[in-house]
């Protein structure tokens, strides 16, 4: 073939492989905040629509300096930790049982499917009657909210554990408990952790609902109070705290994932 009829093959691969670019996320945040600041200062965004980001920051600083931040954060964190710990641990246990036993699976999967879509907030009055308006109902609400997504994620993860690994365990005469502990649980860990990401975010969402009833201190109570006073600065300061909490929880899970799931490709 003559050289003149030769032409380079045009490249048509590439794309469809998004990767995260450093600093872009931060830039978007900063840009949005700057626009809000400029808009509120110039009056283009009214005080009724959005608070000044700098005022929100001031409110946050005051909250910190007055020590109120920790007075609110303390109870909220303990509610979050106790509630999520109960919900997640019971959820993981039940999820594993569903993943392992036919009768439990047949009995509980429809039940979990039935309670999953219930807005847990709707059950708050019921929880108040069962557990009182003290910490009990708050723990219960958060625990219940984290329980269902954890169960679903866990039994899905157990279902996805490589069966040949379990057969391998059996072929080497490993005990049932050893197989569960050394093969099923570590194998399900990636699924359980990604489920936890979701359930802990739900726990933070439910924190506000849990603190609707009978909470004098707490980030949720603080936000609700700000809402009822139409105090946008405090409202946004509270929301900021929740967002930060979400980022921290996500980062902690990321850390756990990196430690526990080093073995993944």
């Amino acid at each position: 073939m003559s050289e003149s009829s030769a032409k380079p093959v045009s490249f048509r691969g590439g794309g469809f492989a998004p990767r995260s670019v450093r600093w872009i996320g931060v830039t978007v945040f900063v840009a949005l905040i700057l626009i809000a600041e400029w808009g509120t200062r110039s009056g283009w965004i009214s005080a009724l629509t959005l608070p000044k980001p700098s005022d929100v920051l001031d409110t946050f600083r005051e909250l910190y300096e007055s020590g109120l931040l920790f007075k609110h954060l303390g109870p909220s964190l303990s509610r979050l930790i106790v509630g999520a710990a109960i919900g997640a641990s019971v959820g993981i246990s039940v999820g594993v049982l569903i993943g392992l036993f036919s009768y439990i699976r047949s009995g509980l999967v429809p039940l979990v499917a039935a309670i999953f879509p219930i807005p847990k907030i709707a059950l708050l009055p019921l929880f108040v009657i069962w557990f009182g308006i003290g910490e009990g109902s708050k723990y219960a609400l958060i625990a219940f909210g984290t329980f269902t997504p954890t169960v679903v994620a866990t039994y899905g993860a157990v279902d996805n554990v490589d069966r040949t690994l379990i057969r391998m365990g059996q072929s080497f005469g490993l005990s049932w408990w050893s197989i569960v502990r050394k093969i099923v649980l570590p194998g399900a860990m990636p699924g359980i952790l990604s489920g936890l990401r979701i359930s802990l975010a739900i726990a933070i969402i439910l924190l506000v609902a849990a603190e609707m009833l009978g909470a004098q201190y707490g980030i949720g109570a603080y936000i609700l109070e700000a809402g009822s006073l139409y105090d946008l600065e405090r409202l946004f300061a509270g929301v900021l705290i929740l967002s930060l909490l979400g980022v921290i929880v996500s980062a902690v899970i990321g850390l756990i994932e990196r430690r526990l799931l080093r073995w993944r490709i």
Partner: peptide, 27 residues
């Protein structure tokens, strides 16, 4: 007495070579 070797190796990906062998001894 009857010990398998599988086509797809069936190694626990979260254990090292050492750990995979010690797995069958631990019990």
């Amino acid at each position: 007495p009857l010990t398998y070797i599988f086509q797809d190796f069936a190694l626990l990906p979260w254990r090292t070579v050492w750990g995979n062998i010690s797995l069958v001894l631990e019990d």
